[in-house]
Computed example of a mutant assay.
Amino acid sequence: MFNVAENNFYIGQKSSIFNVEFAKQVRKFHYQLEDYQPTPLISLPLLAEKLSVRSILVKDESKRFGLNAYKALGGSYALGRLLAQYLNIDIAEIDLKTVATKLDKPLVFTTATAGNHGTGIAWAAQKMGQKAVVYMPQGSPLASAERIRRLDAECIITDVNYDDTVRLANKTAEENGWILVQDTAWEGYEEIPTWISQGYMTMPDEAIEQAAAMGADMPTHVMLQAGVGSMAGGVLGYLVDKLGAGSFQTIIAEPATADCIFRSGTSAQGDMVNVSGKLNTIMAGLACGEPNPVTWPVLKDCSNYFARVDDNVSALGMRVLGNPLLGDTRVISGESGAVTLGLLYQLCSDVSSKDSHKELGLNKESVVMIFNTEGDTHPSRYRDIVWNVKY
Results as ranks from 00 to 15, higher is better:
Gln210Asn: 01
Leu180Gln: 04
Ile179Glu: 10
Leu168Glu: 15
Gln225Asp: 12
Gln210Thr: 01
Val160Arg: 13
Asp164Thr: 02
Asp152Met: 08
Gln198Gly: 06
Gly229Ser: 13
Asp183Ala: 01
Tyr189Thr: 01
Glu190Val: 14
Leu151Pro: 04
Ala213Val: 05
Glu191Thr: 13
Tyr162Trp: 13
Asp205Val: 02
Cys155Ile: 10
Glu209Tyr: 02
Ala153Gln: 10
Glu191Gln: 08
Asp217Tyr: 04
Trp178Asp: 08
Gln210Ser: 06
Ala226Ser: 14
Val181Tyr: 02
Thr165Lys: 04
Ile192Glu: 09
Glu187Thr: 15
Thr202Gly: 05
Glu174Arg: 10
Thr172Arg: 14
Leu168Ser: 05
Ile157Lys: 07
Asn161Trp: 14
Gly199Ala: 09
Ile179Phe: 06
Trp178Met: 06
Gln198Val: 12
Pro204Phe: 00
Thr158Asp: 11
Ser230His: 07
Glu175His: 02
Cys155Tyr: 09
Met203Thr: 12
Gln225Asn: 14
Gln225Trp: 01
Ala169Phe: 11
Val166Ser: 04
Leu151Gln: 14
Thr220Trp: 11
Ala207Ile: 02
Glu175Met: 11
Val166Gln: 08
Met201Gln: 14
Thr158Ala: 03
His221Cys: 14
Met231Ser: 14
Ala226His: 05
Thr158Gln: 13
Ala185Glu: 03
Tyr200Val: 13
Gln225Pro: 02
Glu190Leu: 15
Gly188Met: 03
Ile156Gln: 13
Val181Asn: 00
Arg167Asp: 13
Val181Met: 05
Met231Trp: 12
Asn170Met: 11
Leu224Asp: 12
Leu224Ser: 12
Glu191Gly: 02
Val222Lys: 00
Ala153His: 07
Val166Ile: 15
Met201Cys: 06
Thr202Ile: 13
Thr220Phe: 09
Ile156Phe: 14
Pro219Thr: 00
Glu209Ala: 14
Ile208Ala: 02
Gly215Met: 06
Ala226Lys: 05
Glu209Asn: 10
Gly215Tyr: 05
Gly227Tyr: 09
Gly199His: 07
Pro219Trp: 00
Asp152Phe: 05
Asp159Leu: 09
Ala153Val: 09
Glu190Pro: 00
Pro193Arg: 07
Val181Ala: 02
Gly215Thr: 10
Thr172Ser: 11
Ala226Met: 08
